[in-house]
Structure formats: structure tokens, C-alpha cells
Deep mutational scan, measured.
Amino acid sequence: MDVFMKGLSKAKEGVVAAAEKTKQGVAEAAGKTKEGVLYVGSKTKEGVVHGVATVAEKTKEQVTNVGGAVVTGVTAVAQKTVEGAGSIAAATGFVKKDQLGKNEEGAPQEGILEDMPVDPDNEAYEMPSEEGYQDYEPEA
């Protein structure tokens, strides 16, 4: 019985440690998101679009440190934060509304985080759909 109880105690310690790591990862992701939003706020009209992409990228980098179902929630929060940063930029006159959601080359930025393969159960990952990809044929 002692062996059984000791095993359960060790398992509990492992769960607590994993929860603490997840909590730490979420806190880091939130900190990076805040950094990115402050970065966007300090940019001029020309830099705002690039700044919004930076927020998304920093958040995406930190999301990889967070495991399990938390990833889905962090990704949703990050996307809403990026959308909010863009709205703030438009409201303050840093950028025109028609410039939001495009990178410096004018290509749409939507789907940055949505296409990231995420499995809350950590069982399997699927690649994003290939609808947006084109076949590449090298020139002879």
C-alpha cells in the first residue's frame, strides 16, 4: 500500500510541476504579447503594419512553449490582441483601416495563427491545408 501511495504522490508532483510550467509559459506569452502591443503603439504610420505582424510573430513563438489545451486559448487571445492593436492603430490615425491585415508588401496577414497546427491532446499534428499553395516548377 505504501508503494501505491508513494507512486500516487510522485504522479501528483509531476502534474503540479507540469501545471506550473504551463502557467509560466502562458505568463511569458502574455508578456511578449504586451511587449508587441507597446511596440505597435510606438510606431509611426509606416511601421504600424509591420508592428502588428511582430506582435503576432512574438506571440506565436511563445505559444510553442505552452502545451496542451492552453495553446488553443493563448492563440485565440493573441489573435484578438493583434486585431485590437490594429483597431487602436486605425482609431489613433497611425494607419488607414484599409491597410490593416496586410503586410508591407500588401499581402493579407489573416491566418497567421489560424494555420498553425495545434492539437490540445498532444496526440497528432496535421499540416495546414494546401489550398493556398501553388506547385513550383523550376525553369529549365
Results as ranks from 00 to 15, higher is better:
1 M>T: 00
1 M>A: 02
2 D>F: 13
3 V>F: 13
3 V>D: 02
3 V>S: 04
4 F>H: 00
4 F>I: 03
4 F>C: 06
5 M>E: 01
5 M>R: 02
5 M>V: 12
6 K>Y: 06
6 K>H: 04
6 K>T: 03
7 G>Y: 13
7 G>M: 06
9 S>Y: 05
11 A>M: 14
12 K>E: 00
13 E>C: 08
13 E>W: 01
15 V>A: 01
15 V>K: 01
15 V>F: 04
15 V>Q: 00
16 V>R: 08
17 A>G: 08
20 E>R: 02
21 K>A: 09
21 K>E: 02
21 K>Y: 12
22 T>D: 06
26 V>C: 03
26 V>G: 01
27 A>D: 03
28 E>H: 00
29 A>K: 05
29 A>R: 05
30 A>C: 09
31 G>P: 01
32 K>L: 15
33 T>L: 08
34 K>D: 00
37 V>T: 00
37 V>Y: 00
38 L>T: 04
38 L>H: 05
38 L>R: 12
39 Y>N: 08
39 Y>L: 03
40 V>T: 02
41 G>R: 12
41 G>H: 02
43 K>H: 04
44 T>M: 12
44 T>I: 05
45 K>Q: 14
46 E>R: 01
47 G>F: 10
48 V>K: 01
48 V>T: 03
48 V>G: 02
50 H>T: 12
51 G>P: 02
52 V>H: 02
52 V>R: 02
53 A>Q: 00
55 V>K: 01
55 V>A: 09
55 V>G: 02
57 E>G: 09
57 E>W: 07
57 E>N: 07
58 K>P: 01
59 T>V: 07
59 T>I: 10
59 T>Y: 01
60 K>R: 10
61 E>D: 03
61 E>N: 02
61 E>V: 09
62 Q>T: 11
63 V>W: 15
65 N>S: 01
66 V>E: 01
66 V>K: 06
67 G>V: 12
68 G>T: 08
69 A>G: 05
70 V>M: 10
70 V>I: 12
71 V>N: 02
73 G>T: 14
73 G>V: 13
74 V>G: 03
75 T>S: 06
75 T>Y: 14
76 A>E: 08
76 A>V: 11
76 A>Y: 11
78 A>M: 12
79 Q>M: 03
79 Q>I: 09
80 K>M: 12
80 K>R: 06
81 T>N: 02
81 T>P: 01
81 T>C: 13
82 V>N: 04
82 V>M: 07
83 E>S: 10
83 E>P: 06
84 G>C: 00
85 A>L: 13
85 A>S: 05
87 S>P: 00
87 S>K: 06
87 S>E: 01
87 S>A: 11
87 S>I: 04
88 I>R: 02
88 I>G: 03
89 A>N: 05
89 A>L: 12
89 A>T: 07
89 A>Y: 11
90 A>N: 08
90 A>L: 14
90 A>W: 15
91 A>K: 09
91 A>I: 12
92 T>M: 14
92 T>R: 01
92 T>N: 04
94 F>N: 06
96 K>E: 07
96 K>T: 09
96 K>F: 13
97 K>A: 12
97 K>V: 13
98 D>C: 13
98 D>A: 15
100 L>V: 06
100 L>A: 12
103 N>A: 13
106 G>M: 10
106 G>D: 03
107 A>N: 11
107 A>I: 07
108 P>V: 14
109 Q>T: 14
110 E>R: 04
112 I>N: 11
112 I>Y: 05
114 E>A: 11
115 D>H: 05
116 M>P: 12
117 P>E: 13
117 P>N: 08
118 V>I: 15
118 V>G: 10
118 V>F: 05
119 D>C: 06
119 D>Q: 13
119 D>W: 14
119 D>Y: 12
120 P>L: 04
120 P>Q: 05
120 P>W: 10
120 P>R: 07
121 D>H: 12
121 D>I: 08
122 N>H: 08
122 N>I: 07
122 N>P: 07
122 N>E: 06
123 E>G: 12
123 E>A: 05
124 A>C: 10
125 Y>L: 07
125 Y>M: 02
125 Y>A: 09
127 M>A: 11
127 M>R: 07
128 P>C: 10
129 S>K: 05
129 S>E: 10
129 S>C: 05
129 S>R: 06
129 S>M: 11
130 E>H: 10
130 E>I: 10
131 E>M: 01
131 E>L: 04
134 Q>G: 07
135 D>I: 14
136 Y>W: 11
137 E>G: 15
138 P>I: 01
139 E>K: 11
139 E>A: 11
140 A>Y: 08
140 A>M: 08
